[in-house]
Design a protein around this nucleic acid. Sequence first.
DNA 1: TAATTTGCCTAAAGAGTTTAGGCAAACGCA
DNA 2: TGCGTTTGCCTAAACTCTTTAGGCAAATTA
Lengths: 191, 191
Amino acid sequence: MRAGLTTERVVRAGAELADEVGFDRVTVSEVARRFDVKVASLYSHVKSSQDLKIRIALFALEELAERVADALAGRSGKDALAAYANAYRDYARQHPGRADAARTRLDHETALASAGVRHSEMTRAILRGYDLAEPEQTHAVRLLGGVFQGYVSLEMSGSFSHSAPDPEVSWARVLDALDALLRNWPTDPAR
Amino acid sequence: MRAGLTTERVVRAGAELADEVGFDRVTVSEVARRFDVKVASLYSHVKSSQDLKIRIALFALEELAERVADALAGRSGKDALAAYANAYRDYARQHPGRADAARTRLDHETALASAGVRHSEMTRAILRGYDLAEPEQTHAVRLLGGVFQGYVSLEMSGSFSHSAPDPEVSWARVLDALDALLRNWPTDPAR
DNA sequence: TAATTTGCCTAAAGAGTTTAGGCAAACGCA
DNA sequence: TGCGTTTGCCTAAACTCTTTAGGCAAATTA
């Protein structure tokens, strides 16, 4: 009997492992154990431990992009903003390890070939509901990317729990604030 | 001759190592090599590899808090906001490994005893220049924490380089935007 | 069913982590 | 100054993870 390993299945198992024990504790050895095969066997499916982690990151970015795309369908304006933000946040709650993985620094080339590109395109799509011309649009894309990544990461780390007000309420108000900001984006004082 | 190790010196060396090779590649072994002592010798100064990393994180949080405090002295309003943000960003550029370390998830107890507390107090201090009552102030603190952490982390990862507009300009405009947002914080629609 | 490919295995070396126990340098005190 | 104590770094060893090389048998193909 063979285990029927494929790169795909290995990466998936890695992603599940990440959610269970944390992305930084994902090891090729543990994945092998879960398939009940010897470690060396995995090395025909992933090049290295690094490679496995990068693949998990890419997988998470894909999965997240799909969710965001679904959430965004047919929405615009604040609706779209909230849908995007919530998709992102929900993903992080359901799959903390994968969400961590999605924050992995990728080298430029890999990043360009990743679903990360789709993420910024979708952020741009949201901004069509607001009246922002370039280059302000790009500034806003960067700001939103930063906020989602940073806020969710902070919240996941538990920084907000055990202290009033309710993180749920803060999240809602942060979305209100971002919506307000995008509607009243300040003009460039340098112009 | 003895090497004169102390926890302090070990942690400092770890922080420097983090800046050179990346926080995730900090090992007790490499720190030992730099002091030209055997690995086992370090274990009287730090409990474990994990412990070393946590200590580096706490060290970075302290150091960063000091810088922010200095930057903030005597400023208010947008001036203070920019000073805080720039101190944070400059630290990340000068000490990428330590900045990464400062983003380490700490358990609740450790976090409460860390300089992280001072960080949120300083963020609150900035908000005194804007007219925000509780609980909106806390929402804003959380938002700002998220933005700085997320934006700087994204920029450091190189997401913004190799693409117009200049990251420098984006940063300035993001600060403009945050200032504008804090001056015109939306009222809670639920009230 | 024979030939080929493929997939998982054994074996082994290298590096990091961590603990236990030892010896000598540094210190504290007479 | 010398003696005893403390402290600091060392040796040794076990364990885990990573990674490569080469082998054998199962699955695939003809």
